[in-house]
């Protein structure tokens, strides 16, 4: 079994992560009204907070590429949205990113990383390591955060960048922030 690489996703009461709450507040401050997500352990708390807010339209997706269309529809209707996914789903989005690129539609994607810091499952490494170049191949601006206390500020900056300049922006939230998924 894997050597435990702190921080792990199993937090005790003293170690409840606050970064997803700060991230949620940053999204609310940016007037985000729609959230699309493929279920992901790293975004679990954020997803729960989004569902708990009746003012937010929070949509569970069968695959990440659906979220690009959802965000385009939201924008056409006058609402801001964000898309939550794990790095494993980034490749699913590739052709759909032509839509936001060609139409210059603001897109914010918050991506929790797998396949890096302390990863246990070798199958996760490929798409995790390929994530930045996959995004960049479609003109997505890629930013990365590896410290918990910088997640909210990075997301604030990237949300501003996306909506002020009508660009596609991805924030990669490192596995060090989320904690390595434990397999025992």
């Amino acid at each position: 079994m894997p050597e435990s690489v702190a921080p792990t996703t199993r937090h005790n009461a003293m170690n409840t992560p606050t970064w997803p709450d700060e991230l949620y507040e940053a999204l609310m401050a940016a007037d985000v009204r729609q959230v699309g997500y493929v279920p992901d352990a790293g975004h679990r708390r954020l997803i729960e907070r989004c569902h708990a807010n009746p003012q937010l339209a929070t949509t569970s997706l069968t695959t990440e590429e659906e979220g690009i269309g959802l965000m385009v529809g939201a924008y056409l209707g006058g609402q801001r949205g964000v898309l939550l996914m794990q790095s494993s789903g980034v490749g699913n989005c590739i052709n759909m990113l032509s839509l936001t690129a060609e139409c210059r539609i603001p897109l914010v994607m918050l991506v929790t990383m797998r396949g890096e810091w302390g990863e246990f499952v070798p199958w996760q490494v490929w798409m995790g390591q390929g994530t930045p170049s996959a995004f960049e191949s479609m003109g997505v601006l890629v930013y990365r955060v590896d410290e918990r206390d910088q997640v909210a500020d990075t997301v604030k900056a990237c949300t501003a960048l996306a909506f002020n300049t009508r660009r596609q922006v991805a924030v990669l939230i490192g596995q060090k922030v989320i904690g390595t998924k434990p397999f025992k």
Binding site: R33, I68, G73, L99
Partner: peptide
């Protein structure tokens, strides 16, 4: 009318995002 000329497979999702927004 938003006429798609690419992104095959996205029409229903764009409609859904739009329906939720409006």
């Amino acid at each position: 009318t938003f006429p798609l000329l690419g992104a095959m497979g996205s029409a229903v999702m764009i409609g859904l995002g739009l329906a939720k927004a409006r």
